[in-house]
Design a binder for these strands. Structure first.
Lengths: 205, 205
DNA sequence: TAGTCACCTATACCAAAGTATAGTCCCGCC
DNA sequence: GGCGGGACTATACTTTGGTATAGGTGACTA
């Protein structure tokens, strides 16, 4: 029977999903409440066939945690679990070596199918997830941003001033102003606060 | 056997929790994916003993949805379910007539106990939840804000300018500047963007 | 009654944010 | 080669944001 290790910081969610999967009689479940605990348990038991990681969980830092897990266990199948991530995040996860992506909008039955799929060696990616719903794909506006503009936006999202951003990026304040102006017009917002709020809402940083 | 209606927009979370509860053999479960659907199902079947509402769900608008549900069904027991809410939100939920508060940090077994509790006519509130963890209680800084300052902060959180805020609150722009200044110093942040981000991070608006 | 506090307004000043225009450099592309 | 685009800088300007100080009102309270 395949061993599955599921890591999610919400005990309730993790335990009930684990119980649901175990009830199917097809899998053996282990759980962890953060990335470090998950990696540790992997070490003790190398017979884990599938590692399921919650996108929002201590130690993850977005997709950085996925990379850590992937490097530590290049052979293990890894699936991402997320309630908020949009399609672009899912795409990036797949690029970074995830074997599957399970949005929490999936039904429980579909999740089981997805897991069977991944365990069979396929990669599971629900291309249709969230299509019709509101703003599930990163709005086109964000992909229009150039590299520098994106970096600037990232700094805006910590509430930094133009001067601080200039120092951090090693450029002049005037240049930052230019980038900020472009960001605002490309995102269609009126000021830096709205830009930061919008980016945060889309879970970009 | 008591009837429970659980409403959560994440199909996966809702279905697995429902399955878990049903597996206990103590309850009969119904589900809904948003508040309107939940209220509708209540109407068709007035034998619902417990309504479980996710704090973040279409139609909820924070605790406004709880109030709607409470008004529509004054006699039904209602519990809130949340993965992010802090203790202050939980307190407010209890004040507004919730009979229980279930953080997702609870274990599955504790949730069942909590539900038994609520169905028995008690009010369930996990006083210890999130005590030791990071920033689970609304930082003191926020409670220092006066009414007007709080209203001003709320407007900041939509990225409005001082002028717009002044118009919305029916006061002069200079006054808004005063409120903003006070908010910044009370929250210990450098500018309006940081204030907005901080408030959003604490899920205040 | 005096004190305190939230709230509002006013004037004034300086710093920061945002706009506009123009020009340089580099790189990839037709 | 010429072209366009991204990144960067510069100058100059207007608007907004944030600080400082001072003063007026009403409400609640010692």
């Amino acid at each position: 029977m395949p061993n599955i290790l599921i890591a999610d910081d919400h005990d309730l969610v993790r335990d009930t999903i684990a119980a649901y999967l175990e009830a199917s009689g097809e899998f053996k479940l282990l759980t962890a409440s953060n990335l470090d605990e998950a990696l540790e348990k992997m070490g003790g038991m190398d017979a884990i066939d599938l590692l399921i990681l919650d996108y929002h969980m201590p130690g993850m830092n977005g997709l950085a945690g996925l990379e850590r897990a992937r490097k530590a266990y290049p052979a293990t199948r890894i699936a991402m679990l997320s309630g908020v991530a949009n399609r672009d995040v899912a795409n990036k996860a797949m690029e970074q070596g995830a074997d599957g992506f399970i949005p929490k909008s999936l039904t429980a039955a579909s999740m089981v199918n997805a897991i069977r799929f991944v365990l069979a060696g396929e990669r599971y990616f629900p291309f249709d997830f969230g299509t019709a719903e509101a703003a599930s794909e990163t709005p086109a506006a964000f992909s229009d941003l150039s590299d520098r503009e994106m970096q600037t936006l990232e700094q805006l999202c910590i509430g930094l001033s133009n001067k601080e951003i200039a120092r951090n990026l090693g450029i002049q304040e005037v240049t930052v102003k230019l980038h900020v102006k472009n960001v605002l017009s490309k995102l269609g917002v009126a000021n830096r606060t709205q830009a930061a709020l919008l980016a945060k809402e889309q879970h970009l940083f």
